[in-house]
Nucleic acid binder design. Structure first.
Length: 154
DNA sequence: GCCAACGTTGGC
DNA sequence: GCCAACGTTGGC
């Protein structure tokens, strides 16, 4: 049974639609390099309600930054939503969702977590404030700041 | 390997 | 509904 999509207006009543996100993954589970080789992937396996709700708020074409956790933690690349949330094929039970993502570009310079911590424009970023959340929205400023630090000025 | 943060589970 | 126990995440 399809879930009800969470409209952005309901989730972020006072803010413009967020179209920027960040997803986290351990390289031992799924690396950016593998993602580049695959050219597309199913972002499944999320088992946290807040992260799931963020997946459900993604829209096709949204920009997503890829954060590598655990091993040399850093934001390493830019990708994009190619399919909006659908039932997670990896979930045997429960109400979980997946989206499809495709890589766009590797950051010429990975943005280390230690660097993120020193930047004033990133002081409120969910990555720092909710360290265990694996799918999170980014403000337009946070997104722009990370792109610039990564060597992809727009 | 350690440990803090935090989400989930289950007893009451 | 509370809260202790437990499991997981993830930085260091």
């Amino acid at each position: 049974m399809p879930f009800a999509r969470i409209p952005r207006s309901a989730k972020f009543p006072s803010m413009p639609a967020p179209s920027h996100w960040l997803v986290k993954q351990e390289p031992g589970k799924y690396s950016w390099e593998q993602f580049l080789r695959d050219k597309a992937t199913v972002w499944d396996g999320v088992r946290n309600y807040q992260a799931r709700n963020n997946l459900r708020a993604m829209e096709k074409g949204d920009a997503v930054l890829f954060y590598r956790s655990v091993v040399e933690p850093a934001v390493v690349g830019l990708c994009r939503v190619t399919r909006e949330a659908y039932a997670d094929p990896s979930a045997a039970e429960g109400d979980w969702s997946a989206v499809d993502l495709a890589p766009v570009e590797t950051f010429p310079q990975a943005v280390a977590l230690s660097a993120v911590k020193t930047v004033k424009a990133l002081s409120q970023i969910a990555l720092l404030r909710q360290s265990r959340l694996s799918v999170m929205p980014l403000s337009a400023l946070e997104f722009k700041t990370l792109l610039k630090l990564g060597g992809l000025p727009r």
